[in-house]
Simulated assay, not measured.
Amino acid sequence: MGSLTKAAFGAAASALALSATSALAQEWEPERPINIIVPWGAGGSTDQVTRVTAPIISEALGQTVVVVNQPGASGAVGTQEVLNAPKDGYTWTANAIANNATYTVTGMIPDTSIDDWHIYLSVANVPVVSVPADSPFQDFGALLQAFKERGSEITVATAGVTSSGGMAIAGLGTEGDFDYRMVTYDGGGPAAIATAAGEAMVTTQLAVEQAELIRGGRLRPLAVLSDEALTIEGVDPIPPITEWLPDFPIAPDYFGIFIPRGVPDEVIATMDRIWEEKVMNSEALKEYAQTNGAVFAPSYGEEARARAMPVVIEEACAAEERGLEVNDPSTIGIDCETKSEM
């Protein structure tokens, strides 16, 4: 899939102009608090970045924005709650966009796709393969050999089969031709903490979910699922997975806030403006990304959708290749023979 940097963060794209509908809509002034349902546990990647972004939106709107954790079924429980809620603009969700776009493929949520959402992306994240600080594995090469020899004896902590960490270890198992045993938790943060405590031998969750544990010497990072080294503040560069698996498919995993289609036009017009004026220039969000090994990459609307599609296609087709699909990716408009939209 090309370089992580080149594919997603080469030259910064200019923000799209507001759509004609948004430009004509009135400014929205919410009359009560807005709920953002994070369908994962506290401390994970989605929870972290949403709690950085929510205050920016709250200040711009002059209204409270409440982050509500509602984990379950790899994010499907909270996401379905948002889809079922009244389309009045007061219930949003946050997630990795690839999850929202592929829940139908994995059978978690029937008949939904990326186009059920207005998309507001904030950062891109990458998974990191880490082991407890006292692990005998000093580099990914040694761990890879152990996977090949011991297979399902090696336990891997993730936030679930369709989480970023779950898809990461599935991809590694396919590319490296090995088995493993997954241990699932209610979020990436809990999975990383459990690994640091010795409950699992490996985690493949996102860098932002591991950063403090890595900085504190409780986790040892072995490889980042990228074709470039990853730098986390205060930590030596983490080598790219392509040093060991040169053909490993790379696609940036975008996270953000999503508002369901069908809400009033003025909600979207106002959020477009806030995202362009405030979030895309937020020093707090930039600092969060730089400190935790994420990439500052805010966008919205059609630009956000275009940025998201490579990882959506990659994960939908990976689910099919690994036998994880319940519905064919063609049901959400993806052709896995060409790895493109239909």
Rank of each mutant, 00 (worst) to 15 (best):
T162P: 00
E29H: 15
G217F: 07
V263A: 10
P264I: 12
G151M: 08
G293K: 01
T112N: 10
N281P: 02
P110F: 03
T93Y: 03
I169M: 14
V38P: 01
K278R: 12
D47T: 00
W28H: 08
T291S: 13
M167Q: 15
L230T: 06
T5H: 14
S113N: 11
D115H: 14
R220D: 03
E209N: 02
D111C: 00
G188P: 08
S74A: 15
M108L: 13
Y120A: 12
A157I: 10
V263K: 11
V52W: 02
G166F: 11
P132M: 12
T242K: 07
V156A: 09
A200F: 04
P298D: 04
C336T: 02
G72R: 04
E303S: 10
G89C: 05
P240C: 11
S45F: 01
Y300K: 07
K87H: 09
P30C: 03
A168T: 11
A200V: 09
E321Q: 11
V208M: 05
G44C: 10
E277N: 15
I119R: 07
D88R: 10
L144R: 11
F137M: 02
T106I: 12
V156C: 11
G43E: 03
T270M: 08
I274V: 11
P239H: 14
D116A: 14
A76N: 05
A157D: 06
I34P: 04
A168V: 14
T104A: 15
D236Y: 01
M182A: 07
K87E: 06
G107E: 01
D88W: 06
P240G: 09
V126P: 02
F178P: 05
S152N: 09
M280Q: 15
D134E: 07
D111S: 14
A306Q: 12
I109Q: 03
R150A: 04
P110Y: 02
N84S: 15
D111I: 02
L222A: 08
L245Y: 06
A191G: 04
E209M: 12
N35P: 00
E199F: 14
R181V: 00
F147P: 00
E302T: 13
D247H: 08
T91Q: 07
S130F: 01
E276F: 06
G43I: 10
M167R: 15
N99E: 02
A13T: 12
G41K: 10
V208L: 08
I241S: 12
G216A: 09
E277H: 13
F9C: 06
K278L: 01
Q63K: 05
T158H: 03
D111Y: 03
A191S: 11
A94C: 07
I232R: 12
D134H: 11
A11T: 11
V128Y: 05
A11V: 12
Q290K: 05
L324D: 00
A11F: 02
T195M: 07
E209K: 00
F255H: 15
L230V: 06
V183F: 01
G234I: 10
F248I: 13
F137L: 01
A191N: 08
Y288N: 03
N281V: 08
E209C: 04
L219H: 13
K278I: 03
S3D: 13
V126D: 05
Y120N: 14
T184D: 09
I36T: 01
T204M: 06
I34A: 05
Q48H: 06
L213W: 10
E175Y: 09
S14M: 09
T242S: 14
P127F: 04
Y185M: 05
G44E: 14
A223W: 01
L230R: 04
G176L: 06
E59H: 10
T291V: 12
G141K: 07
